[in-house]
């Protein structure tokens, strides 16, 4: 199934029933997320992983995306100040 379908259906329903949704969405999202992360861990456990490589890759992505964002924020946003 395309990922957009549940997203768009959810967004439309959320807009339509803005004030009628009484369910605690945060709690529901937290439970779903914990289960999803568990299943993700199961899938990752089935393949060989080098923990150091994984750490280096994650850290590199985090640092470079942050620095890139900051650079463009200063470049584009600095003119508006």
């Amino acid at each position: 199934m395309n990922i957009f379908i549940p997203l768009v259906i959810g967004a439309i329903l959320g807009c339509l029933f803005k004030n009628k949704i009484k369910v605690d969405l945060n709690r529901l999202m937290s439970v779903t997320l914990l289960m999803l992360v568990f299943f993700m861990g199961v899938e990752a456990g089935k393949v060989e992983i080098n923990a150091i490589n994984l750490f280096v890759a994650s850290f590199t992505f985090a640092v470079l995306t942050m620095l890139g964002s900051l650079f463009f924020a200063v470049l584009l946003g600095g003119r508006l100040r």
């Binding site: 549940p6 259906i9 967004a11 329903l13 959320g14 339509l16 029933f17 999803l36 299943f39 199961v42």
Partner: peptide, 26 residues
Amino acid sequence: VQFGSLYEIMLYLLIFIIGLDLGRST
């Protein structure tokens, strides 16, 4: 242990809830 398609079901449920929350809080 095999969990079948539970992963996909959870993913679509999470995406649906995210959509619901987005639509509600814009």
